[in-house]
Computed example of a mutant assay.
Amino acid sequence: MEYAKGSRHYEDEINSYATLEDLDDDLLNSYKEKIGAESIETSQVLRARGFLRQQGDKEYLTNAAVLLFAKNIMQFYSNCRVRFLRIDGRELQVGDKFNIIKDKSIDLPILRIIDEAKNYISDQLRVFITQDIKTGKFIETPEYPEFPWLEGIVNAVAHRDYSMTGCFIKISMYDDRLEIESPGCLPDVVTVNNIRETRF
């Protein structure tokens, strides 16, 4: 109920199992560079950003720190995954008509999962070549423009509910559409009926 009300955030809670040694130095150094903190000790940066918290006489990483920077994300969060399905046809079939022709899981920390998903999906998209009648030049047009589907993946990764175990982001490519599903409920006052006008 606290998650639903927005009074408690899973990402801010401590992870009592992960240690600083479980974090990826390359990701941490890249993050420090982006925020202009290259010369500052990593633990101090994590503390200042709320990724390292004191509880009793010990310091613990938060779930957010592990989701962002873990070397092996599956050790801690098996739900930090993007699963891509390529379906042959316009509907998913089962049994002897089973029509999934590609099934790829991308299991990486948040700071790597978007780029990996982008690279993989762009390789799956068809490119249509047409000739411009006026110029005679051939024009390549991707099956789907990159901006909307990449924005969909970014939103799915950024806004999904990581407290929901056993769930993952699913991207399904059919012959006529691309669907992106992200685990979680609509936030606070947003409903299916008011989603076009309501912000939260």
Rank of each mutant, 00 (worst) to 15 (best):
E2F: 12
A4Q: 12
G6M: 10
R8K: 15
H9M: 09
Y10Q: 05
Y10V: 05
E11Y: 10
D12Q: 13
E13N: 07
E13W: 04
I14H: 04
S16A: 11
S16M: 09
Y17V: 08
A18I: 06
T19C: 04
T19V: 06
E21R: 11
E21K: 15
D22R: 06
L23S: 04
D24R: 08
D25G: 05
D25N: 14
D26P: 00
N29R: 15
Y31Q: 04
E33W: 07
E33S: 14
E33I: 05
E33R: 13
K34M: 12
K34N: 13
I35A: 06
E38P: 01
S39R: 10
S39A: 11
S39M: 08
S39C: 04
I40C: 06
E41A: 15
E41T: 07
T42I: 15
Q44I: 15
Q44R: 14
L46H: 01
R47G: 02
A48V: 03
A48S: 15
R49S: 06
R49V: 01
R49N: 12
R49T: 05
F51Y: 15
L52V: 00
R53I: 03
R53D: 00
Q55F: 11
Q55M: 10
G56S: 07
K58M: 08
K58C: 05
Y60M: 04
L61Q: 02
A64F: 02
L67V: 04
L68Y: 10
L68F: 09
N72Q: 12
I73V: 14
Q75D: 13
N79D: 06
N79T: 04
C80I: 03
C80H: 03
R83I: 00
F84T: 02
R90Y: 08
Q93W: 01
V94Q: 09
G95C: 01
D96Q: 06
N99E: 05
I100G: 03
I101H: 03
K102C: 05
K102E: 15
K104W: 02
S105T: 05
S105F: 01
I106D: 00
D107C: 09
L108V: 01
I110R: 12
L111V: 02
R112G: 03
I114C: 02
I114Y: 03
D115A: 12
D115R: 12
A117P: 01
K118Q: 11
Y120H: 09
I121P: 00
I121G: 00
S122C: 06
L125V: 06
V127Y: 12
F128A: 09
F128Y: 14
F128D: 11
I129P: 00
Q131P: 01
D132T: 04
G136K: 08
F138E: 11
I139Q: 13
I139D: 09
E140W: 02
E140L: 07
E140H: 07
T141L: 13
P142M: 07
P142A: 07
Y144M: 05
P145Q: 07
P145D: 10
E146A: 14
P148I: 04
I153V: 15
V154I: 15
V154R: 15
A156S: 13
A158L: 10
H159V: 01
R160V: 01
D161L: 03
Y162F: 14
M164Q: 14
G166M: 03
K170D: 03
I171C: 03
M173H: 09
Y174P: 03
Y174N: 04
R177M: 07
I180Q: 02
V189G: 07
V189A: 09
V190C: 12
V190R: 11
V192R: 12
N193T: 09
N193R: 10
T198R: 13
T198M: 13
F200S: 10
F200G: 06
